[in-house]
């Protein structure tokens, strides 16, 4: 490919550390170029953590694995991946690479109205298992269960078509208008924006053992008067 080599891989320093931007072009060529660039500045890159900006590019699990191995060879750790491609995001989740939330002005997430990013959603069609963390700047839709010990953190809303039993945090960047709905909403902990709810022990006993599939009542959680309120779907 006769593409200008500088444009395919860009390495720059940002407030949050090193950032590598991957452009278009053949994957193996990108890798070898990145390899060469990292080799030039071994002393500089060694031991650093980079954020990878992949844009809309589709990267599959195998390709991402190759990239991580390449970075590792140069003693560089992949801190996070920013992508607007769903397959890439899924590959990243499969390899437990943290998906970057979009750049925020400071280290602390700030309260702000729903921004344009939050209209973007991802669909995850699998069981989210104990120890797994699903993070996305926009909405998250899970077709499957969120098991105990798993966490889902979304900038926007969270919808679980299944049993939601892990930790759920909607509106994670401060949006109190975010909602969480699930076919069976029995999370270990539920957060919306800055609010945290652990369901009161006596009032709404959390079954350690879930009711048989299909017998639970779908529910929606949202914030009303500064509190998280859970409403059965039918009573809306």
């Amino acid at each position: 490919m006769a593409q200008a080599s500088e444009s395919a891989v860009t390495i720059r320093g940002t407030r949050r550390g090193l950032s590598i931007t991957i452009g278009a072009g053949e994957w193996q060529e990108l890798l070898s170029e990145l390899d060469a660039r990292l080799a030039q500045g071994t002393a500089f890159f060694s031991g650093s953590r980079v954020n990878l900006q992949a844009g809309r590019r589709e990267i599959n699990t195998e390709q991402l694995r190759q990239l991580i191995d390449l970075l590792r060879k140069h003693k560089v750790e992949l801190a996070s991946l920013l992508t607007s491609s769903r397959p890439t995001a899924e590959a990243a989740q499969a390899l437990q690479v943290r998906l970057a939330l979009a750049e925020t002005p400071g280290p602390q997430p700030v309260l702000r109205p729903v921004d344009q990013d939050a209209s973007d959603g991802i669909l995850v069609h699998r069981t989210v298992r104990s120890g797994q963390s699903l993070r996305h700047v926009g909405h998250v839709v899970v077709i499957g269960d969120v098991n105990p010990g798993a966490e889902v953190i979304a900038g926007g809303d969270i919808i679980v078509w299944g049993r939601a039993r892990g930790m759920l945090h909607a509106g994670a960047m401060g949006d109190e208008g975010a909602v969480v709905c699930a076919l069976e909403l029995t999370p270990a902990q539920l957060r919306i924006g800055p609010h945290i709810a652990v369901s009161p022990e006596g009032q709404r006993p959390r079954p350690r053992v879930p009711p048989p599939r299909g017998q639970a009542q779908p529910e929606t959680a949202s914030v009303a008067e500064g509190q998280i309120v859970v409403v059965p779907w039918g009573n809306r």
């Binding site: 499969a94 298992r129 104990s130 120890g131 797994q132 105990p148 010990g149 798993a150």
Partner: peptide, 15 residues
């Protein structure tokens, strides 16, 4: 069972 769930997730992430 909880441990099994964790391990299944790890196995998945290792392809």
């Amino acid at each position: 069972v909880r441990s099994a769930d964790r391990v299944i997730g790890l196995a998945e992430s290792m392809g």
